[in-house]
Amino acid sequence: MYTIELLDVVTTAGILYIVALGLLIVYGVLKIINLAHGAFLVLGSYAAVIATWLDWSPWSALVIALVGGAAVGAVAEWRVLRDLYVRPLDTILATWGLNIIIVQSITLYFGREIQFAESGVTQAVSVGGVTYSLYRLILLLIAAVLGVLVWLLMRRTQIGIVAQAVIMNEELAQALGINTRLVRFVTFCLGAGLASLAGALITPLVSVHPNLGVPWLINAFMLVMVAGVSLGNLALAALILGGAQVLVSSYGNPVLGSLTIIILAVIILRFRTITT
């Protein structure tokens, strides 16, 4: 009966989770809000366009996106953000500036028109009696895999442990001989790479143009603010807020639906008593 709604809710949550993951990592470790996140999503989408131009498999776009996003992120961290961590509000401005630079560069090269990118999967499958988009289901799977991978990376590997140490107490981490500068650099690259990867992953569902990032950025931003720094909370927030968006759009008013995530996030943050 409610199979479609259920599928819509979980796959929407999965997509939102993928899109917000990179932002969460940067916010969690670096304590900065990366407003260039939307631009990295755009970069990822154009990676898919380039893969199409080169006649490579649509899946290769994911690799191009991850590597390309991380590379641009590296330059951005190195040239722009490195000295700004002590001025957190200014990092919001600087990353917004970065967003302008990346988006305008793409516009200059590709133009504002929509670009064609090949999709790997376009068919639908039958799930519980309804035909449903296979790609959305794959995205749900990828969201889960990415979530687990990032969790393993953060909890089980040396670099993750070091990053955790920096989150918890940066001075102490420095005192233990951890190069926090390097940790930040690697983290930002990872965040940018994941954002870009997310851009490539959502490309089969959306049209590719230089301004596709901003609406996604705003939703991802709200989710991360609600989730704080925890991967589990992010999944929960994506499920609750994303689910609310789908349900409000379906049964209520679509205008309200499109604003659900923003409004809920503002309310939750205002009236949540537990502060982390």
């Binding site: 001025r87 200014d90 401005l93 917004w96 516009t107």
Partner: peptide, 20 residues
């Protein structure tokens, strides 16, 4: 138009970083 916006973006980042 696009070069101009790009220029504003660069100017903005430079100001934020070097001339807050």
């Amino acid at each position: 138009p696009f070069i101009w916006l790009l220029f504003v973006g660069f100017a903005f980042v430079l100001v934020v970083v070097y001339l807050p």
